[in-house]
């Protein structure tokens, strides 16, 4: 397995290189110009040209690319054009809220969705099954921001149980302030993932429940709980784990709406702000970072298959 991991890690290098080149070119060829945003609404065209020169944006794209790759090789993602801060510092400032929100969402989702999906499969066709499916459809259909606003209005404004917005670090402010700020975003974000994973779990478990070995287990007199947990769920785990893994990757890069609705200073908002301002180094740095996370998560998912299915060997 060790040699497989090494091979997979080495295989990521060309992927990263292609992503880097593609992102760099896409940004340079897309409309918009950081110099005009920096100069502000009341600057002249002459000012914009001078700022472009000072930022090195007038240099040929190949020269800019070579410089960027050179810095990248030394682990330097560059300096934000606007804030003048290193991209690594900006990612460092924003990574904790996003990671914690991802973690709480995935934990809550798994705790709710897997039992719900298993139950629905076990009681297929019953009112429980229909209830779970109804929730899934609703979960997919309600936009995240609508759910967020409803929760804020009811829980934060009317009941005044939780704060409207913001993020408090568990390490700086303690557990309770952290929980108070993360509960509503977690609930908001979990709904769609609960819907997705519950459906996936239901389908996988239902399929496994039709297998001969499940009938054999039942014939041997095993309890339904054992049949479900030991035989059905474990064998249905591979597609469920894949979806959970993809969910984590999506959450890390795609929680911009939730972060905006709850004013959480995470990576999603950093990407959006950078795109609107055309802050090239941040966009490039973040896309590379997200690519790396995707690759890493995929590797972990692939490796985790061996835990659930002994037939899989690397």
């Amino acid at each position: 397995m060790f040699s497989y991991v090494i091979k997979r890690i080495l295989a990521t290098i060309p992927v990263i290189v292609i992503v880097a080149a593609f992102v760099f070119l896409m940004l340079r060829l897309s409309p918009g110009d950081p110099a005009s945003v920096i100069a502000g609404d009341y600057a002249t065209a002459e000012d914009i040209v001078r700022i472009r020169e000072a930022l090195g944006l007038n240099e040929p794209i190949l020269v800019q690319f070579t410089k960027w790759v050179g810095s990248l090789m030394q682990g330097d993602l560059g300096i934000s054009i606007f804030t003048n801060l290193p991209v690594t510092t900006l990612i460092g400032q924003r990574i904790e809220p996003t990671l914690m929100l991802t973690l709480t969402t995935i934990i809550f989702t798994v705790l709710v969705a897997v039992p719900l999906g298993t139950l629905a499969a076990w009681k297929a066709g019953s009112w429980i099954d229909r209830g779970v499916m109804l929730f899934s459809v609703a979960g997919f259909s309600v936009p995240v921001f609508v759910l967020g606003y409803i929760l804020i209005y009811v829980v934060a404004i009317k009941l005044q149980w939780l704060p409207v917005q913001g993020y408090r670090s568990m390490f700086e402010h303690g557990l309770w302030p952290f929980l108070r700020h993360i509960i509503m975003p977690t609930l908001t974000l979990s709904v769609i993932f609960i819907a997705l994973i519950a459906r996936m779990t239901r389908a996988s478990v239902m399929e496994v429940l039709q297998e001969d070995y499940v009938r054999t287990a039942r014939a041997k007199g095993q309890s339904e709980v054992k049949v479900l947990l030991r035989h059905a769920l474990r064998n249905a785990a591979v597609p469920i784990v894949t979806v959970i893994g993809i969910g984590i990757a999506l959450l890390i890069g795609g929680v911009v709406v939730t972060e905006s609705v709850y004013n959480i200073p995470g990576l999603g908002r950093l990407v959006l702000d950078a795109v609107l301002a055309r802050d090239y180094p941040i966009i490039q740095g973040l896309i590379l970072f997200f690519s790396f996370i995707y690759i890493l998560i995929n590797l972990i998912i692939d490796l985790s298959y061996t835990l659930f299915d002994p037939r899989i060997r690397y």
Partner: peptide, 9 residues
């Protein structure tokens, strides 16, 4: 970034 959240805050 969101005006409604700002108002709620």
């Amino acid at each position: 970034p969101d005006q409604t959240t700002a108002m709620n805050a």
